[in-house]
Design a protein around this nucleic acid. Structure first.
Lengths: 213, 213
DNA sequence: TGTACATCAGTGAACGCGCGTTCACTGATGTAC
DNA sequence: TGTACATCAGTGAACGCGCGTTCACTGATGTAC
């Protein structure tokens, strides 16, 4: 039994991680297998020891990120649930508020390597196969679930808000849309203005029921 | 002088139009010049009588749509301006309301050929050259200008609203983001729910200053 | 009006490059004795 | 402890296909006379 048992798996994870960064930055078609393997410190031929095709690598790279991020968001929501009652209305440090501010931050806008694939790859995903789309959908649902839960927890009396889900869906669309739009703009000042405007309105939507003014 | 003077230009426009549809549906890389020329009823070789490269065709196809749509939106805004005073607060038929409802309609969500390139091609544009990005930015600015103007016109006293621009930017992000997200979802019921939620919240943002509840 | 001509939009074969994929081989590693 | 061996992750040359691009040619068209 040559090589340690985990050796192959570590190499595969290394390739996947390197590929995720390259795909996020350049998209599916513009990244060659040669480029991925070189970035991973390996050579072309070994690729097919780990993946059956380039498409499979793409799915692994995107899905790994999506599942990782989605799991984190679900965990955030879980923590929040276990502490339900400690979250007060308009809590400036609610999980949603923290998450939204991080998602729509200048740092995330500038992070071409680590950015969320929902921002980097929407066109590619829209044209992709059902497996990838499902992974993407699960990530969105985790995000929406987090928002919806926080909207309902804002109410001190614990009453469900009838439009909570609709607002949560819109908040997610605005988070993603603001970043997607900002990425396409050549004028970086305008791009940052879009980002900031999206953040302000997401916060408005999150707090809409409280009529802050 | 063989062929009528406009013949070549008509052929070029035909190629551009056919290419726009194909690019919108499949993206830049997946559409070959051969496929475009065949769809236009021509053969491969003639392509370079009209365009210097595939990239040039892409720019022409996207820019033609963007400029056309942008001009239309600016015209809408212009018409609205000339009638300023006739638009009342919460006017359900304001140009913005009509436009937003059309943009976030089920029809637009299903229209893979005619859809706005801001929805179909955000990832491709984000990785494109400055000419394309500028055309894209101009379209966004036309859309935002239209929204901003209608927000300010809602006020019967004609007062400018300090956050009008920020809200207009967020509305545009939500219009585009809602459709982009919906396109990526394999569950068409959920996709339509996202679309409807985005529409509802855009209308909330448009009317926010009136505190409708 | 009719005919010869010049132009150039359009044709289709061919080129060349890049990339996904395959495959025979290598050599580092853990195991058996 | 040391040595021979079997395994298989990794190598790199080669294949084949598709596509962007080029180019010599064609033939439809408007003009000149």
């Amino acid at each position: 039994m040559p090589y340690s048992p985990q050796h192959k798996q570590q190499t595969k994870e290394n390739i996947t991680e390197v590929a995720r960064v390259l795909f996020n930055r350049h998209g599916f078609d513009a990244v060659s297998i040669d480029a991925v393997m070189q970035a991973a410190g390996l050579t072309r031929g070994g690729f097919y020891n780990h993946f059956t095709s380039k498409e499979a690598l793409y799915e692994a790279a995107v899905a790994s990120f999506l599942m990782g991020r989605g799991a984190q968001w679900r965990a955030d929501a879980g923590i929040d649930t276990s502490q339900s009652g400690t979250t007060t209305p308009d809590d400036p440090d609610s999980v949603t508020a923290l998450m939204v501010r991080s998602y729509l931050s200048s740092e995330h806008l500038g992070d071409l390597d680590g950015q969320c694939p929902m921002i980097a790859l929407p066109s590619d995903i829209a044209r992709a196969g059902p497996e990838l789309k499902s992974a993407y959908q699960q990530l969105l649902q985790a995000m929406v679930g987090l928002f919806e839960q926080d909207i309902n927890h804002q109410q001190a009396d614990g009453a469900q808000q009838p439009d909570a889900r609709s607002r949560a869906l819109a908040m997610a669309s605005l988070c993603i849309g603001g970043m997607v739009v900002a990425r396409t703009l050549p004028d970086s000042k305008l791009a940052d203005e879009v980002r900031a405007a999206a953040l302000a309105s997401v916060e408005t939507l999150a707090a809409a029921s409280t009529n802050p003014d």
